[in-house]
Structure formats: C-alpha cells, structure tokens
C-alpha cells in the first residue's frame, strides 16, 4: 500500500468534511475479510481515517452519485471511473457543482474475490490507455505511464471470427446460467432509469421467468441500452455471480460505435452522444 497516497487522500477528505465543502466522501476502506476493499461513505473526519487506496479498489464509485443527487459529495475516481463522471455529466444526470472529484493515479487493479487477492491485473487494466483521470478537482498520486499502446479488441475480433451458430450456442449457454439478480444493472453507472424496462408491467417487455429465452432478452436489451454509453469499467462482469462474460457484449458494441460514429463514451462531457443526436451524413443509406 502506498501510505503516502493514503495519507493525502485522508487529509483531503478530512479538510473537505471539516470545511463543509461536502456532506460526505465516497471512497474505499478495507473489507471485512482484511484482504479486499469495499466502498466507504465517510460523513465525518474520524470515518475519513478509514479511507484507503490500493490495487484491490475495483469498485466504480461514480454509480453512488446517482443515489446522492442534490447532495454535495466528494468521490474518489480512478482514471477509468472518470469516464463515468463524463458520461453522467453528458447525460445531465449529475451536477458538476455538487461533485468534488478526488482523482487518484492508478497502477491498475487486480482480480479479487472475497478473502482473496490475485497478482493478476484485471484485463481492462492491461488494455487501459489512460494515465490519469479525465476530470478531477484534485489529483492525488502520480500520473502513470500507459499500460497499453492501443486498444486492439483482440477478444472481440476472436469472438467475431466464430460462426453465427457457434456464437448463438455460446450465448445460449451463458444466458441459461443467468439468475436475473440484476447485479449487472445495479452496479452500472449507465443504468439509472427510474423504472427499468425489466420491471415495467405495462407494456411488459420481458417476463419474470428465469429461463434462457427471457434471460437472453434481458441481457440483449441491457447491452443495447449501453451502446455508445458503456464506459468499460467492467463492474458488471466483476459482480456477476455466475461469471457471464459481459465484457464481450459491451466491448463489441463499444467497437461498433467507435467504427460507425467515431465515438467513445465518457471521454468528453460535452460531445453529443451518437444516440442522442441525428446527423444525416452519418448514415447516408438511411432516411434518404
């Protein structure tokens, strides 16, 4: 653990709370297992003393800002998480004035599960192109070198090379394991509909059956709703209790949107997102 960085984080949180700049600081603390970390909401300076940061701090805390709308909150963001801030600013879901962003330099986070920490960096970190958060009020820790030179989407190219039949089989098997716990939705900073289509009764989009067909419908619509919006934090895949490789779906759409619209979510808070705008020249064969 980088104690110097942790002291800086605690100091900043303390001063933000003591000066009344924010009502609370959303950061990380050591989990009950003594090995991994978990989100911490610090509302006073004594709680701020529990804040930590290390390579187990995988959670994208930006999600929690949606539940604290209207309150002045500080939040710790890693470079990847900062894209979620831009997404929510872009979609007018959070008020920049209400959020104090504590950016942290991040050497990458490792694969963790309860009571266990591996030495392996998460796949998303191995291909991370960011060296520091894209948006912040204060930056703590060092700006680090890029971990990859470019995004190659090698996993997606590999999946795309499979036949339609084998892809269909693959996803059928994956979705048959889905238990519709909705953890993928609940953890996602881009999922904030007041009533999710999955819970809507009139009209009924998807039924309650926890069965391959309805699970497939749920996962397909979930993925499409995130097209051009997923910021790649991959929290959905991390929290899935039955290990469905959701990154393959999200990254496939990220790649498509990049190719079709030259757009990647969360890089800029002002650039109009492709599915919220209509530009005739983008798709000349449509609407002529």
């Amino acid at each position: 653990m980088d104690m110097e960085l942790i002291q800086q984080i605690r100091g900043k949180a303390r001063s933000l709370l003591e000066e009344g700049t924010v009502e609370g600081v959303i950061g990380y603390e050591r989990a009950g297992d003594g090995v991994t970390s978990r989100p911490l909401f610090a509302y006073d300076s004594s709680a701020a003393e529990r804040l930590i940061f290390d390579d187990t701090c995988t959670h994208n805390l930006v999600k929690y800002l949606l539940g604290k709308r209207g309150k002045k909150m500080a939040v710790m963001v890693k470079p990847c998480d900062s894209r979620a801030i831009n997404l929510l600013l872009n979609e007018r879901q959070i008020d920049r004035d209400k959020v104090f962003i504590i950016g942290v330099g991040c050497p990458g986070v490792v694969e963790t599960e309860w009571n266990h920490k591996s030495e392996t960096l998460q796949a998303r970190c191995r291909s991370c192109l960011l060296t520091k958060p894209l948006v912040y009020d204060v930056l703590l820790g060092r700006e680090l070198a890029r971990k990859a030179e470019e995004e190659t989407y090698s996993d997606i190219l590999e999946a795309e090379a499979e036949s339609v039949v084998s892809r269909r089989e693959f996803w059928r098997e994956q979705f048959s394991r889905c238990i519709r716990c909705y953890a993928c939705r609940q953890v996602c900073p881009g999922c904030y509909c007041p009533v999710c289509f999955a819970e809507q009764l009139e009209p009924l989009w998807v039924g309650i059956r926890i069965a391959p067909e309805e699970n497939t419908l749920w996962q397909t619509i979930r993925t499409f709703h995130l097209a051009g919006r997923c910021i790649g934090c991959n929290e959905c895949e991390r929290v899935c209790p039955v290990d469905i490789p959701l990154s393959l779906l999200n990254r496939k759409l990220e790649k498509d949107v990049k190719e079709l619209f030259a757009f990647q979510a969360g890089l800029d808070p002002e650039e109009p997102p492709p599915f919220a705008t209509f530009r005739k020249e983008e798709m000349p064969e449509l609407g002529e």
């Binding site: 909401f41 929690y64 716990c181």
Partner: peptide
C-alpha cells in the same frame, strides 16, 4: 448507513 454501499441487487437472496 449500511445501505449506502448496498447495490440492491438480488445476489444475497438468490
């Protein structure tokens, strides 16, 4: 306070 960090998914129940 405890619910602050709860995601309200259904994992625990399932």
């Amino acid at each position: 306070r405890l619910a602050d960090r709860c995601l309200h998914c259904n994992i625990c129940a399932y």
